[in-house]
Computed example of a mutant assay.
Amino acid sequence: MSDFDVGARLKAIREDSGLSQRELAQRAGVTNGLVSLVERNKTSPSITSLRKILEILGMTLAEFFDSGAPADPGRFVFRHDELTEINPGRIYLSAGADALKALSLRRAGKQGQTNLLLLYETYDPGADTGEEAYSHEGEEGGFVIEGELLLSVGDTTEILRAGDAYLFDSRLPHRFRNVTQKRCVVVSAATPPTF
């Protein structure tokens, strides 16, 4: 997924919807310049901006990043090397390129086949989901398997260590960060799937 062409994907979906860049931008409440720059891969959208754009196109983040490959409906085991890299952090620059490159999110299963998003997350030192907290419909929870993770939900910030868990209403603004010098591994789940 590291070769995922955000610009080409957005342009194709916009054109299929019969919208001009200007019309999409106006409906989404973003600038025409942003849509143009994203489609030409000259800038990376924030999570908030991309969600606004995709909402107008009637699409979730999960659908946007879906490779489109068919899934085997009877399959229930996914080996680590078969997990789908969905790492949206690599295209969101609100935390800076270095912090976001240190974040990896790998999904079990195929988007659209389940009502649960199950992730194996790796936060290298300095990884951050962005300076801008984000929110979405549903709930999410997880377990810290290795290392430490700084989690902010609403106005509260907590440090989670190996063996600790979290569970919250994901409509509350939230942010994940590794502020230590060691890798952090988290296994998480969210419903409904958001990407």
Results as ranks from 00 to 15, higher is better:
residue 5 D to A: 05
residue 6 V to G: 08
residue 8 A to L: 13
residue 13 I to R: 12
residue 14 R to K: 04
residue 19 L to D: 03
residue 21 Q to M: 13
residue 26 Q to H: 12
residue 27 R to W: 06
residue 28 A to P: 06
residue 34 L to R: 05
residue 39 E to T: 09
residue 41 N to C: 05
residue 51 R to Y: 07
residue 51 R to T: 14
residue 55 E to V: 00
residue 59 M to D: 15
residue 60 T to E: 09
residue 63 E to Q: 15
residue 64 F to D: 04
residue 68 G to R: 13
residue 71 A to W: 12
residue 72 D to P: 13
residue 72 D to H: 13
residue 75 R to E: 15
residue 79 R to W: 11
residue 80 H to T: 13
residue 83 L to F: 09
residue 86 I to V: 15
residue 88 P to A: 00
residue 89 G to I: 02
residue 89 G to K: 03
residue 93 L to G: 07
residue 99 A to L: 07
residue 99 A to D: 15
residue 100 L to K: 11
residue 100 L to V: 10
residue 100 L to E: 13
residue 106 R to W: 10
residue 107 R to F: 04
residue 107 R to G: 00
residue 107 R to T: 02
residue 108 A to V: 08
residue 113 Q to L: 03
residue 113 Q to W: 03
residue 113 Q to S: 15
residue 120 Y to T: 06
residue 126 G to R: 10
residue 129 T to I: 12
residue 130 G to P: 10
residue 132 E to R: 14
residue 132 E to P: 00
residue 136 H to A: 07
residue 140 E to C: 11
residue 144 V to N: 03
residue 145 I to Q: 13
residue 146 E to I: 01
residue 151 L to R: 07
residue 152 S to D: 03
residue 154 G to M: 02
residue 155 D to L: 03
residue 159 I to E: 02
residue 162 A to L: 12
residue 169 D to S: 07
residue 171 R to E: 13
residue 171 R to P: 03
residue 174 H to M: 03
residue 174 H to L: 05
residue 181 Q to P: 04
residue 182 K to H: 14
residue 184 C to M: 14
residue 184 C to N: 04
residue 186 V to R: 04
residue 190 A to K: 10
residue 195 F to T: 10
